[in-house]
Design a protein around this nucleic acid. Structure first.
Lengths: 139, 139
DNA sequence: TAAAATCCCATTGACGCCCAATTTTGCCCA
DNA sequence: TGGGCAAAATTGGGCGTCAATGGGATTTTA
């Protein structure tokens, strides 16, 4: 699901994703740096709370928990779509995800990600290779 | 079972495959990139759910689980057939399977695949050759 | 007050849905 | 066994709707 960024730096969020958002009655989007990938994750506030709960389950003094907390709170901003369901691709998004003029949308249930197209395929190819090697080993 | 893509980019799914789908009462199709072959696999939504359940068993923040999620969610879309049982061959399908104007259908029990015709024969030849070499070694 | 962000509207294009024409298939009968 | 026929499948294309796009106009902010 790849879309072009227009001259004003906007991308229209595919209607499939917008449908999910409206069904969940989400108007304000929390846009943050993904925990493991060079991608931007976009979710409603309640998903944010879920992440926080998960972090709270761990050791509050662990490096892991603190890093994640930092990513969530320090690495995110609130945004909203314009009347036509478009999102402004800010420098925050461009820099972290390496996006220039194309964005690939990846839905993940109740939230979705923005990827630089080739970065996504690279990561997917890498994962496929790993899976292949695994199955070879188990032969 | 090779079919041509029409001027509008559609292929009619052979009735044999559609029969299977209707028998399983599948209206929405989960169309995803095959894990091992350069082909598109098409199945019902329950296949995606099975994948998701498998992922949910692990740590949602682990690299492992996230990579699998990326493969599943980033490599699959939902589609449905038109009134005459045709499927639009989107860029998503074309790019991954290398399909241009012809599609070969391969049934695999409860799901089926879309192949670029020559890619399928190449893969079959390769497999045949490997089997030959195996039998020679074991002689 | 200039630049940027936001809102608004017109146009384009893609897609779903429909109907008609044509081809293929399975079956019956001479 | 070879037609002939009816049903089913496939194919081609028209048309309306809505998402996507492009470009002003207007407001906000620094």
């Amino acid at each position: 699901m790849t879309k072009k960024v227009d001259a004003k730096g906007r991308v229209s969020v595919p209607s499939a994703f917008r449908t999910v958002l409206t069904r969940l009655d989400i108007r304000d989007l929390y846009v943050f740096q993904d925990f493991v990938f060079p991608a931007i994750s976009i979710a409603g506030p309640e998903v944010l709370e879920r992440f926080e709960r998960h972090i709270d389950q761990g050791d509050p003094f662990s490096m892991e928990a603190n890093k994640m907390s930092l990513l969530i709170h320090g690495g995110g901003v609130f945004m909203k779509l314009d009347g036509e369901g478009r999102l402004v691709v800010s420098d925050f998004i461009r820099d972290f995800a390496g996006i220039t003029d194309q964005v690939t949308f990846v839905g993940r249930g109740d939230y979705f990600q923005l990827w630089e197209p080739s970065a996504l395929t690279r990561m997917q190819d890498e994962t496929r290779r790993e899976r292949m090697e695994q199955s070879v080993r188990s032969t």
